[in-house]
């Protein structure tokens, strides 16, 4: 074996300037490649991230819907009936602003409309009072029956107003 320092002379080794110069030349070719690698990597991560977000979002919506359905199905029959009443009344009440707007223009007497409005507000007050007295999920059979009657009355009045053209659908 021959030692490298015995074989090579100092002229054989690159000086500092030569080493830096060669590295600059190498960098010119490798730097864009590196940037490109990062870009490709970033783009891939972005696409994967977006796909994952969509999948997680769909999974969450599905889970929430199933949970809500399961919760609603698990509720006792009287509560589900009450929710149906409330839902129906809410739907009617969404169109109530049109009634008040039409009051002065309808041929019906103002007195009749005022009576209906009073009836509705009385029913609402009675419902609110009953609701304040007890918890939603802890209704006694008597209160539940009374609430059903009030809901039915309110629905009946609203139905009559629709049939007589007092609510402009």
């Amino acid at each position: 074996m021959t030692k490298p320092e015995d074989f090579y002379t100092s002229d054989d080794s690159p000086g500092r300037r030569a080493r830096s110069g060669m590295w600059r030349g190498i960098q010119r070719h490798t730097a864009p490649l590196q940037a490109n690698k990062w870009f490709v990597s970033d783009r891939r991560s972005f696409v994967l991230g977006m796909a994952t977000t969509v999948v997680i979002g769909l999974a969450l919506v599905g889970t929430w819907t199933l949970t809500r359905q399961a919760f609603e199905n698990a509720q006792p029959q009287p509560l589900r009936l009450e929710r149906a009443y409330i839902s129906a009344i809410n739907e009617f009440e969404h169109v109530l602003p049109f009634v008040t707007a039409k009051v002065s223009q309808t041929p019906q007497s103002k007195e009749e409309l005022t009576q209906r409005a009073q009836q509705l507000s009385l029913i609402d007050a009675a419902i609110s009072q009953l609701r304040l007295q007890t918890n939603v999920i802890d209704l006694s059979p008597l209160i539940r029956e009374r609430l059903r009657q009030l809901y039915a009355m309110k629905l009946q009045i609203l139905q009559q107003m629709i049939e007589r053209g007092e609510i402009d659908l």
Binding site: P4, D12, S13, P14, A18, R19, W23, A31, W38
Partner: peptide
């Protein structure tokens, strides 16, 4: 893609490679 790591490899290998090729 770490270019600093590649620079270390360059620094360690450039002289042996250079003086060999010089022959």
């Amino acid at each position: 893609g770490n270019q600093r790591a590649f620079k270390v490899l360059y620094d360690e290998n450039v002289t042996p490679l250079y003086r060999f090729l010089k022959q």
